[in-house]
């Protein structure tokens, strides 16, 4: 699904979280959104997910303006906030069952995939535990299982690499995300971990004070800096020093 963000302005009272942001994201890519704290990364994800309403501008999916009552459009997205939204008093399996049903993704045959995902993320022995009894990393993994099992066109993830997941969980997420991108899915995630972003993204979006300072592939960004081994670090240094990227 092609995503277009056209001149989106989003303010929280006097704070401009997004300052007329425009982007175009082709399907089948992993896009890393980077920026300092308060740069507007999470707000951008929320605008894409329809949680936050832009003050101006619009978000288009496959050329059509996004509306909250367009369930066909909304069900092509899956949003993972920094902490998965679950019913805490219920088990992982019950939560998965409810979420997959809302996405109409609980058709016969998908249970094998769910089982495989639970195994891969080391959640199978915990599948009947209440969500509230799990650790932060385990809850995030359960959220990823729901996301991967739902298999939507666009995956929106807020800070997946700072979610408390263990190295194995992170590795599994990367494998599944890469496999999904090969099938034409789009993965958009925010992060502060520059080395992961450099290795894991097809395109990188640098936000600063609500403005897009760069949106390009790593190769093209490399052309803009002197230190070719630490592209993002140098770009961030330039941003802090007030230079243009």
């Amino acid at each position: 699904m092609k995503i277009e963000v056209r001149g989106v302005l989003k303010t929280y009272r006097s704070l401009r979280a997004l300052d007329f942001v425009s982007l175009e994201i082709e399907p089948g890519q992993i896009v890393g959104v980077l920026g300092a704290n308060g740069a507007g990364k999470t707000t951008l994800l929320r605008c894409l997910a329809g949680i936050a309403a832009p003050d101006k501008g619009e978000v288009l999916f496959d050329g059509e303006p996004f509306r909250r009552d367009r369930l066909d459009m909304r069900s092509r997205l899956y949003t993972m906030p920094d902490f998965p939204f679950f019913f805490w008093e219920h088990s992982i399996v019950r939560n998965l069952a409810m979420i997959l049903r809302v996405y109409d993704a609980d058709s016969p045959g998908n249970e094998t995939r769910v089982l495989q995902l639970l195994r891969d993320f080391d959640l199978l022995p915990l599948a009947l535990r209440r969500v509230q009894s799990l650790s932060r990393g385990q809850i995030y993994k359960a959220g990823l299982v729901a996301m991967i099992a739902a298999d939507r066109d666009v995956w929106l993830l807020d800070e997946p690499f700072a979610s408390g997941m263990d190295p194995h969980g992170i590795d599994m997420f990367k494998q599944y995300a890469l496999e999904a991108v090969r099938r034409g899915r789009t993965v958009i995630y925010t992060t502060q971990l520059l080395d992961i972003a450099e290795r894991f993204s097809d395109r990188l979006c640098l936000l600063d004070a609500g403005e897009v300072r760069a949106f390009d592939s790593l190769e093209n960004l490399r052309m803009r800096v002197h230190d070719k081994g630490n592209v993002l670090e140098e770009l961030f240094r330039q941003l802090r020093e007030g230079g243009s990227t």
Binding site: A49, R68, L71, D82, F85, I99, V102
Partner: peptide, 25 residues
């Protein structure tokens, strides 16, 4: 029920149903 339940994340409360494809009507 849980229709108006919110989840608090870092100073912001988001409706539990907001990330899911559920319409107002």
């Amino acid at each position: 029920g849980a229709a108006f339940r919110t989840v608090r994340t870092f100073g912001i409360r988001i409706s539990l149903l907001a990330p899911y494809p559920v319409a107002f009507q």
